[in-house]
Design a protein around this nucleic acid. Structure first.
Lengths: 160, 160
DNA sequence: TTCCTCCTGGGCAACCTGTACAGATTTCCC
DNA sequence: GGGAAATCTGTACAGGTTGCCCAGGAGGAA
């Protein structure tokens, strides 16, 4: 789906101040409300904007430790492993990847000690041959999309 | 910050149907509007809910390829590398981690061919010694938080 | 028992959303 | 170049929601 500059500015604005609503957004963008509304509908319909769900911070919830685990799966056990991992609440996301490992998952835990428990639970399942865990120390670039949106719209760098 | 069952149900409800608003949410939860509002304010104040920004789907934007790259950084070059990566729009997030690699970053690209370009750009910077890229094939568990929220509130598994 | 916190139920003004429509503009294709 | 199609603007209206306030009641702690 193609994005133009107005779309990008709209997304950026809503990302920065989600509470403002369509009306205020249209005012700031200097367009009619109907236009902003139409753009927003288009973006939603096109799947670019999936929704406006609450962004939950695991750290604030008591899970300040994040880690990435690479899992090597025994041939043919993929489906079961996925089902297993889906049942572990501390598994925030799971990908199947190319390369040495077969899966990469993002974990959170209450502490490094607790991380051990989480990992044990993740690995305590037949089908996982080997694993490798990397604990996140810092997060210089938190998950972001605005720069990409600007880029897709042909706009210059982040806020330039 | 402590979360109770009502908080969890509120978050889950808003995550599932963000458009309903506080009033409708309170109705569905069977509590007074003031209560729902107070809970929501508390969650926001406590940092559990960061906001309600639009969730953008990079794939819909034309970037269907995702990859994770592990970077090994030359001693003392961390700061510069971060700055560099922050300037690359296709870098969606960046972490510093323990283990062999020193950094882990999530990338997106328009195609596998385009991924090459992105990687070249990421690596085209002094200070990065070695790198290892894993392309995401499937995403059995997309980034989620609800199960964790339920878990933190002492509720049973996802929607049970 | 008394104090304190949290929830309830109600009310009010201001505001926003969803929707619609006619006219002006711009864009794109033949 | 001409014309159809798509887009934007400005405006209007009804209905619903938000933000805020308050008094009373329930439950827990000291």
């Amino acid at each position: 789906m193609a994005i133009d500059e107005l779309d990008a500015r709209l997304i950026e604005l809503l990302a920065r101040e989600p509470r403002i609503g369509v009306l205020e957004a249209s005012r700031r963008l200097g367009v009619a409300r109907g236009t902003a509304q139409a753009r927003l509908d288009k973006l939603r319909a096109g799947g670019v904007i999936r929704g406006f769900g609450p962004e939950v911070d695991p750290a604030a919830l008591g899970f300040p430790v994040t880690a990435f685990a690479t899992l090597e799966i025994r041939q043919g056990r993929g489906a079961e492993v996925r089902r297993h991992l889906r049942g572990v609440p501390e598994v925030l996301e799971l990908h199947t990847i190319t390369g040495q490992g077969d899966m990469l998952c993002r974990l959170v835990a209450r502490s490094t000690a607790d991380l051990q428990r989480v990992i044990d639970r993740v690995l305590g399942f037949p089908g996982i041959v080997r694993s490798d865990t990397a604990i996140v120390m810092e997060n210089p670039v938190p998950l972001r999309v605005i720069p990409l949106v600007r880029h897709a719209a042909g706009l210059p760098g982040p806020s330039a």
